[in-house]
Each structure stands twice: as C-alpha cells, then as structure tokens.
C-alpha cells in the first residue's frame, strides 16, 4: 500500500516529527511504499542541515536523510512555509539575494501542490502535528 505522510511540527519542541519518522520507517520495513513525506508549518525546520544537537541526543534531520537514502523516498519541504522560517535551498537563496542556504541532503523544496498531489496519489494519508 502507498502512504503519504504530512509533518506539521519541527524537530524539537513537539514529538510529531519524531513520531512521523518512526511511523515512516515502520511502514517501509513492513513492505509498504511511501509516496512522499511533506513538511509543512514548523515541520520545515526538520530539513535544516545547520542544527547541532548535543552528541548524546538524536539528530532527527540526519535520521530522515539516512532513511530517505536507504529507501529512496521523497522528502519535500513546503516553499511558502520554508521562506517564512528562513529555510532556503541554493536556488532560492540566490533568487532572494541571501548569503547562505541550509537545506539538508535528501530534502527538496517545492510548492504546496505537492501536498495535494501526495493526497491524490497515496492510498492513505497520515498527519503528524501538534
């Protein structure tokens, strides 16, 4: 079965992005497909490569990047939500005249249409938020 996953919260204040990770991993390990994981609202903050949590704490961004690499899943960060919160990829940084970009490996930035498309193409949509 094909799942779509929506993540509405960032990596540290709420448990949502952590729960979403465990769910997605379990879905893949149990023979399901994951059409896409879409990061919206503060969820976009999961995709910054500049966070440096203490060494004995989990680095959720790295976990997502590794999962995406292993199972070839599509991690999409909403562009409108990302721009509000200072998440930029190389192209967007150039276009907006910013001096840095911060998107982690395995994530890409795209429009909200990708969320709707995920809903249309998936058999089930599961939402993690606050």
């Amino acid at each position: 079965m094909k799942f779509g996953v929506l993540v509405n919260e960032g990596p540290y204040t709420h448990q949502a992005a952590n729960s979403a990770y465990h769910f997605t991993k379990a879905a893949l390990e149990n023979g399901h497909e994951v059409e896409r994981v879409f990061f919206y609202h503060d969820g976009v903050n999961v995709g910054t490569r500049l966070s440096v949590p203490p060494q004995d704490e989990r680095n959720l961004q790295k976990d997502w990047t590794a999962l995406a690499k292993k199972h070839n899943i599509d991690l999409v960060i909403c562009i409108a939500a990302a721009q509000r919160r200072g998440l930029l990829d190389e192209n967007e940084a150039k276009r907006q005249g910013k001096d840095a970009n911060n998107i982690a490996e395995g994530f890409r930035i795209s429009g909200l249409g990708q969320l709707i498309e995920m809903g249309i193409k998936s058999d089930r949509l599961v939402i993690f938020g606050d």
């Binding site: 919206y40 409108a80 909200l112 249409g113 709707i116």
Partner: peptide, 18 residues
C-alpha cells in the same frame, strides 16, 4: 499560524479539481 496556512493549502488545492 495553522488557520492561515490551512487556507493557503485550500487555495492551492483548488487548482487540482478535487
């Protein structure tokens, strides 16, 4: 921000003719 960002999805989603 949920109400505003939800409305943004509704507006974008309208183009998909669902």
């Amino acid at each position: 921000i949920y109400a505003l960002e939800s409305l943004e999805v509704v507006l974008i989603g309208a183009a998909f003719e669902q």
